[in-house]
Simulated assay, not measured.
Amino acid sequence: MRSLWLLLGLGLLALSHVQASTDIADELLDEDLDLSDIDENEEEFLRLLEEKNKIKDIERENEIATKLAEVQHNLLNPVVEVDLCETMSCGAGRICQMHNEKPKCVCIPECPEEVDTRRLVCTNTNETWPSDCSVYQQRCWCDSGEPGCTNPDNAHMHIDYYGACHEPRSCEGEDLKDFPRRMRDWLFNVMRDLAERDELTEHYMQMELEAETNNSRRWSNAAVWKWCDLDGDTDRSVSRHELFPIRAPLVSLEHCIAPFLESCDSNKDHRITLVEWGACLELDPEDLKERCDDVQRAQPHLLG
C-alpha cells in the first residue's frame, strides 16, 4: 500500500511541475494581470508575477489534495457488488437465479451428460437414471408442475442406491446372521482410514485413537462415531433420509445392508436411536457412550 501511495504522489508531483512551467507563459497573457498598470521596474513585475503564481500553486495543491482524498476513499471503501445468490441455499435439483433484482430458486435447467456407467442411480421406483442430477431435476420439475415432468409421482422419488437397478438378492441364513459383525468391522475400518488421511475432526480423532488402543472400545466407538455423524439435525435419532449416505453406496455391493438397516428400526417409527443402532450391531448398551454433544460442538478442524 505504501508503494502505491509513493508512486501516486510522485506522478502527481511531476504533473504539477509540468503544468507550472506551462502556466507561467499563460499567466503573462492572463487578462487578470493588467500589464499596462505595472511599473517598468523589473523587480515589481516579478513580484506581482510571483504572487500570481503562488495563488495558482495553492489552487493546484488543493486540487491535488482533493484527488488524493478521493483515491484514498475509494481504496479504503471499495464498492463491492453483493451476489444475493451466494447466500441462498436452494437444495438438490435447484439453482439460484435473479428475477426482478431478487434471488429465486429454480429447477436446474440442464444436467451434464454422463457417459460413465458408475454415475447411474437407481430410485425407489426401481428405475435407472443417468445421474443423481437428473433425478433431482426431475423431482423439481414434478414438484413445480413444469413441462419436463414425466410422471407426477416423481415429485416424491429419491435415490435408492448408486448403480443400475438390479434384482435384489435375498439376505438370509448365515449372510444375515454374520452381517452385524461385517458392519462393525466396516465402520471401524472407515473410521481408521479417515484418521490416517487426517480427515476427522479433533473429537472424532480422539475416539479413533481410543478405539485403536482399547479393544473394548474398538467397535462401540466406531458405531457411536457413525451414528453421531449420520444424525445431521442432532435430534438424537437417525431418520431414513439421514441413512442415505451409508445405504446408497452399499446397496449394490452388499445385499444385506437394506434388510439390516430395516431391522435397526425395532419399533418401526422410521427413526433409529443410539440404543437401537447398538442393538442391531450386537453391542452392549453399556459400551455406547453418547458423545455427540462433544463432537457436534467441536469446530471442524482437520488434523495434520
Rank of each mutant, 00 (worst) to 15 (best):
H99Q: 11
N100L: 13
N100T: 13
E101L: 11
E101I: 02
K102C: 01
P103E: 10
P103Q: 11
K104C: 02
K104L: 11
C105K: 14
C105S: 09
C107L: 03
C107I: 04
C107G: 01
I108M: 14
P109N: 10
P109T: 13
P109F: 04
E110L: 05
E110W: 02
E110R: 08
C111L: 04
C111I: 04
P112V: 10
P112G: 07
P112W: 02
E113P: 02
E114G: 04
E114L: 07
V115G: 10
V115C: 07
D116S: 09
R118L: 08
R119K: 10
R119G: 04
R119N: 08
L120P: 00
C122I: 06
C122M: 06
C122T: 08
C122Y: 06
T123K: 08
E127Q: 05
E127N: 03
T128G: 06
W129Q: 02
W129F: 11
S131I: 08
S131R: 06
D132W: 03
D132L: 11
S134D: 15
V135K: 00
Y136T: 08
Y136H: 14
Q137C: 01
Q138T: 05
Q138H: 04
Q138I: 01
R139C: 00
R139W: 00
R139V: 00
R139T: 05
W141Y: 13
W141M: 08
D143R: 15
D143H: 15
G145W: 03
P147F: 01
P147A: 07
P147E: 09
C149P: 00
C149Y: 00
T150K: 14
N151T: 04
N151E: 08
D153I: 09
A155F: 01
A155C: 03
A155E: 14
A155L: 05
H156K: 14
H158M: 02
H158V: 01
I159V: 07
D160V: 00
Y161W: 09
Y161I: 02
Y161V: 01
Y161S: 06
G163S: 09
G163N: 09
G163M: 08
H166Y: 15
H166R: 15
P168D: 13
P168S: 11
R169H: 12
R169G: 10
S170G: 09
C171W: 09
E172K: 13
G173R: 03
G173F: 01
L176Y: 02
L176H: 01
L176W: 01
L176I: 00
K177E: 06
K177D: 05
K177R: 09
D178N: 11
F179K: 09
F179L: 12
P180R: 03
R182Y: 02
R182A: 03
R184Q: 13
R184H: 10
D185Y: 05
W186S: 15
L187H: 02
F188W: 13
N189D: 12
N189K: 13
N189T: 12
N189W: 07
N189I: 11
V190W: 08
M191Q: 09
M191H: 12
R192L: 07
R192C: 01
D193R: 15
D193W: 12
L194R: 12
L194W: 08
L194V: 05
A195E: 12
D198R: 07
D198V: 03
T201R: 13
T201G: 14
E202L: 07
H203Q: 13
H203R: 14
Y204D: 14
Q206L: 12
